[in-house]
Design a protein around this nucleic acid. Sequence first.
DNA 1: CTGAAAGCGCTTACAG
DNA 2: CTGAAAGCGCTTACAG
Lengths: 321, 321
Amino acid sequence: MIATSEDVARRAGVSRATVSQILNGRGQRFAVETRERVTQAASELEYQPSAAGRTLAKGSSDIVIAVIPYTTFGGNLQDIFQTATEELATRGLTLLLHLATDSTAPLDRVVTGMKPRAVISLTPFSRAELDLLKSRGVLAFDPQSASSKVRTDPNVDIGALQARYLVDRGYESLVFAHLQDARLDPFGEGREEGVRRVCTEHGLPEPMIIRLGIDPDDALAAIDSIKLPGAGVVCYNDDVATALLSAATIRGWKVPDEVGFIGMDHTPLSAVTLPPLSTVGYDQRAAAYNLITAALHGLGESVDDREPMDVKFALVPRGTA
Amino acid sequence: MIATSEDVARRAGVSRATVSQILNGRGQRFAVETRERVTQAASELEYQPSAAGRTLAKGSSDIVIAVIPYTTFGGNLQDIFQTATEELATRGLTLLLHLATDSTAPLDRVVTGMKPRAVISLTPFSRAELDLLKSRGVLAFDPQSASSKVRTDPNVDIGALQARYLVDRGYESLVFAHLQDARLDPFGEGREEGVRRVCTEHGLPEPMIIRLGIDPDDALAAIDSIKLPGAGVVCYNDDVATALLSAATIRGWKVPDEVGFIGMDHTPLSAVTLPPLSTVGYDQRAAAYNLITAALHGLGESVDDREPMDVKFALVPRGTA
DNA sequence: CTGAAAGCGCTTACAG
DNA sequence: CTGAAAGCGCTTACAG
């Protein structure tokens, strides 16, 4: 049914060794005529090498696993991985996605089972994941390893950036709004910490901490728990900000005069709230590009054609603060 | 570094054949004592069988590939695949995700390369995908194959459900709002068709068709292009509905009196718009559950403990129509 | 320039 | 109750 290298060899009248060499780019030393017969036969038979056979022979597969954190999987993440899939494909690598779970056991199964060439993630690996990957001898790449900087939590910077914006706008009493479900809020701690630091820096009182789900009742209760007017709310993401904005509007608070909000993510929907949301954008595409570049480099591929892109967080000042 | 079955065999003082049998559940006929030595040795060595070796020997891997369509990847999809990952893991199957691309070439690489036990998708496979999978001899499962019904496009039903709701509410002039980017709108055609049918049924004029991105200017232009007051807008999804609702509010139209909207997806954010969005919910979790059940059944696993769940589209009447 | 041979880690009849 | 042997599809020195 499915052609093997044996079939190709027979059809081309050569040995399997020859087929393997030629199809894997080590064919320079073969007669042009032979090369052509082989590639011809391969395409006629729609030959696709077996990943299993190849993996076994080489000790590692051509698979790269991207670990997807348990967090909002936005539409643009999809875009990003699609691009990554294509970029890796041109180097003969196959990208497959794996959903992160609480325990690292499934990751272990995947890693030792599939022997991927590398494991990548757009968000920093946890200590446990890093240890696992290391002990299994698998190359791991995350944003931290991609940016040659020291390992620091970028979430602290994000929280600080949001808070500083509010302070600059004159809000003197800050609030940090977490997303209720802790699993969905892997970055909340760092963000909150960033807000705290800014408060300290500016001699402001400690931020008030609230938590809510994306739900009207939650949002109303949260708004009612804040001392208004006068507060500036740093939100975990644009969804949280939208829910709170809506609740504040229902309660009749003037935005941004009596209460301010700043979101995070720069989602498409953040542009169509009333008023449109002030938020922070993060160039995921650039981050992904750099991650892939780092991974390719680490895998010994040439990356001369890939200039590193500048990744930064960009304030998007709009109507809510 | 990484233990092989050879290592386990040596440590347990048995042959590799024995290790294989015992670790794969065919150990009934072995001495209890032997079984224990083997499992003991395996766990001490943190043995994980090599997927490559096993795949080569068995002719098929323990991998199940889920094809993710190029469309909004909502947070709940994440939830669903996480659950599916776990359900499959208990049967020794590993779920990996593959992003659909325009061409089926990458899918082909994955399928013939990895020899997955099955390929599943929460949205119907395209003709091309189906053909490929069939020719490669891979089991394929999608919602259509899971629900024993004839292959019909559920999107037509969804569009019709939305339209009928608006008609029941008294809107006599319907509009269908597509999401601009065609790649993001794989279901638009079917939905539009559903709306058309309802108009015909009720002797109403043909629906007006508009297209917009999730963008304030697009939305304003779209609203301005509709004959108001009096129209009911069937929206591709909740995001489109939110953008239009916002534009209508800016223009001063009364919702739902002068213009009505119904979205689709029942996203968390749809509950916090002003007024909250009328929408249609789809029990993805149930659909996924049935899909997995069908896949397990097709793979010869026992599914006696898995009662099929009822999947339907549920209207969520709220404030916009 | 090309092929024979060994080996990657596993599973599966089969023999005992 | 257990093991020797063959084979899955490939790649990689090595020999010629």
